[in-house]
């Protein structure tokens, strides 16, 4: 089964986002070995060059490292993963605030709503 893409946006960007999400959520753990470009491309149902570009971008951000002999792994730098997790959460929070502001809630009220929703 291939991954679900929004075909109006560059695919490589979406792959970067998806793999980043899988790393910060712990689906891929620090130090985990990752599939080869080919395997990744086949699973995602995307062009191998696009996958290569996405993995290179992830390497640049430091989330993925290439080991000389054992291929690509998730970084064992848990601080970096934590930082990325924070960034992802901040992005989500900003989007949430945009919506709650649009319906007339203050930030404090929006936080109360989150606490309430968490109990449901």
């Amino acid at each position: 089964m291939s991954w679900d893409f929004d075909e109006t946006r560059p695919i490589f960007q979406q792959i970067v986002e998806m793999i980043t999400r899988d790393i910060v959520s712990g689906k891929y753990k620090a130090g985990d070995k990752l599939p080869s470009v080919r395997e990744f491309a086949v699973t995602a149902g995307v062009n191998p060059n696009t996958m290569q570009k996405a993995l290179s971008a992830l390497e640049e951000s430091g989330l993925i490292v290439t080991q000389r002999n054992s291929g690509r792994t998730v970084t064992d730098n848990t601080k970096l993963i934590g930082k990325m997790r924070k960034e992802a959460a901040l992005d989500a929070a900003k989007k949430y605030l945009e919506i709650t502001r649009a319906v007339g809630l203050s930030a404090d009220e929006a936080i109360e709503v989150i606490k309430e929703a968490d109990k449901l």
């Binding site: 893409f5 695919i11 080919r38 491309a41 086949v42 149902g45 995307v46 062009n47 191998p48 696009t50």
Partner: peptide
């Protein structure tokens, strides 16, 4: 999936089709 799996970097694959949804994500 088979085309992707068999694709090797020394070659080029040209696919003629009008079924764009199916090939959209695999094309360079």
């Amino acid at each position: 999936t088979t085309i992707l799996r068999e694709f090797n970097e020394d070659s080029t694959v040209m696919i003629s089709t009008h079924l764009l949804n199916e090939v959209e994500t695999i094309l360079d």
